[in-house]
Design a protein around this nucleic acid. Structure first.
Lengths: 344, 344
DNA sequence: TCGATCACCGTAAACGTTTACGGTACTATG
DNA sequence: CATAGTACCGTAAACGTTTACGGTGATCGA
């Protein structure tokens, strides 16, 4: 005798009534509903998830897929932890649980996703590390699994997405640097085909063109999106005969390695080279302080969750006017790393 | 017509045989097994997890519980990602899936755990952020849920654990500093009741006592285990009239904030104060370079997973001589941050 | 008084698996 | 040839829920 049956026996009513009472169905006496809820709390009854989802075809779980090979994500634990926290505050309102689906670095992400979906793991998914062309989108769309992505892609199946405003950052940065007299400006991008790299570089080139300048392809640095990558960029930068006077960083973490590499060579940000990057908890402690873009990760998570739910029939009416696709603006925080101007 | 039934109809055999074939049961003709496997691959059949776990009472999922409030984790940026990767390489051998169970900062961890267990989410669990007294352990033991923990606790229900060698680090650090002539040595610890703080401080005091010195309680700094906490410690350190000549950092990330705070005041590590900390990907880029302890997080994850499986009846025989409880040694990497000696 | 409506509740089927049990055809053994 | 054993396979029950359906007693209107 187990689960709901035990509870029903204890109350001397049928399991159907117990289930209805717990699930807030209208056709049950308020008096008995109260008794059921009390008994459930007393006995510590929680519906078995397997039974429930087998019957309903729904799991009340939303999966956030991420790769555990850290070089790939380019974001750290704390980035996602903060985003998760925002996502969860929304999901909690609907009794949905967020779990992180961890794809090992040894497994193909597409295969992993297929497996997750086929097993009926989650009702909906959030994807990160979106590729410029991402086959996962088409797969999920075909299976009619609701999903949202953190990051745009050229693959478009109508899914909601949130993304950071890489174009805006490129535009603002270029304008700012050009106004300070810079002409040779370098940009960075991740080494792989992640979409944000394309957006950032393309917009940088466009912004430069608007000023009558062009982006020197020799000044587009690819690196792994972590501290080591930043250090490598410093080496490449220092090795250039005609060194650029400024550099744009698309990733949050490489600033740390870059600072270190430059520092070893006696090249000081804000005096010998201008740097504009993106802020993270760590970057606030760089010296000289970094000029860079910052955002509320928690708010980002909230918006992402709401965009996802707005596409799910069961929750759509809660979010009638959610923004399904949004470029998330970041604020520029002025620091010392681009403090100087060049002579005209 | 769905799932296994469709597959069976397609092959014109019974669902029982299909199931047996897929699950590697002996009483099925190898010829038909081959046909079944081929058809399954062709049709992309994957057993529905709800049906399977309802029947078997097992989910093939191992949950790694963590809190999404980032200050709580207290580890470096990609600490967990690396550990996960190690854990997964072990689990993959047994067709187990690792998911991160994310407890929102707004929910009580004990409640969350109760809910997860009652719902029958995972076959086993890994817990982090272990408290000095941790009621979760007793709860899981009573429910007979296998689990392992990343971190020791005074609560002992016989579960396997792995932990970092905080005592060893304290001992080595103190010995090293005393040999260099230091007498006033400060130590840090997390602000909350996480167990490692006690271990570290206690052992530091003991090591000092062995040298005829005592730990000044005024030199035990509590902080949030992140960059901001390190910055605060710098402020407190600088405000002391009789400033300590050395400081031990138990956390990986606070070094960054501490460096920044000291740097602002013109206090240079390795010249004006000795620092021994712990390494993370970020800390490799501090300047002057940090003297600190380092470990392979991936190996740690592997050991943790093996310890857990060694306690589960279904997998025990794969790991007959796994170390169920282990203090994980870290190697000291010499840097410049404690380079100087004091006059005798 | 009778039928209709209503509030509430019990019954049983269904979700997709796994597996105990029994059955069939074939082989081996005497 | 009879029997026992073996290899393989089909049948159906079970896991814990939810929910469509029908049933009961009470209330109400005519």
């Amino acid at each position: 005798m187990t689960g709901i049956r035990r509870l029903a026996q204890h109350l001397d009513i049928s399991i159907g009534t117990v289930s209805r009472a717990l699930n807030g169905r209208p056709d049950v006496n308020e008096e008995t509903r109260k008794r059921v809820l009390e008994a459930a709390a007393e006995l510590g009854y929680v519906p078995n998830q397997s039974g429930r989802s087998l019957r309903q075809g729904t799991t009340n779980i939303i999966g956030f897929m991420m790769q555990t090979g850290t070089e790939i994500t380019g974001q750290g634990d704390t980035f996602f932890m903060s985003v998760f926290d925002g996502v969860q505050t929304v999901f909690a309102r609907h009794h949905l649980d967020l779990v992180a689906l961890l794809c090992s670095s040894e497994e193909d992400p597409d295969d992993y996703l297929r497996r997750v979906v086929a097993r009926g793991f989650a009702d909906a998914l959030i994807l990160s590390s979106t590729q410029r062309h991402d086959p996962r989108f088409e797969f999920l769309a075909k299976r009619k699994i609701p999903f949202a992505t953190l990051g745009r892609s050229l693959t478009d199946v109508g899914q909601p997405w949130l993304d950071l405003d890489f174009e805006g950052m490129a535009q603002t940065s270029i304008d700012r640097l050009v106004a300070k007299g810079h002409r040779r400006i370098a940009v960075t991008r991740p080494h792989d085909d992640v979409n944000l790299g394309h957006l950032f570089v393309d917009q940088s080139a466009e912004a430069l063109a608007a000023h009558g300048l062009s982006l020197d392809l020799d000044l587009v640095f690819r690196s792994t999106p972590n501290e080591a990558g930043g250090y490598q960029i410093a080496q490449q930068l220092l090795a250039k005969k005609d060194r650029p006077t400024a550099i744009l960083l698309v990733n949050e973490t490489i600033a740390i390695g870059l600072y270190r590499g430059l520092n070893e060579a006696g090249v000081k940000p804000g005096r010998d080279i201008a740097i504009i990057g993106r802020h993270s908890p760590q970057s606030h402690f760089l010296s000289p302080s970094l000029t860079g873009f910052a955002l509320s990760r928690r708010d980002l998570g909230i918006a992402l969750a709401e965009a996802l739910l707005a596409t799910m029939p069961a929750f759509r009416h809660f979010y009638p006017d959610a923004e399904l696709r949004k470029v998330w603006r970041e604020d520029l925080i002025e620091g010392e790393s681009d403090a100087f101007s060049l002579p005209a």
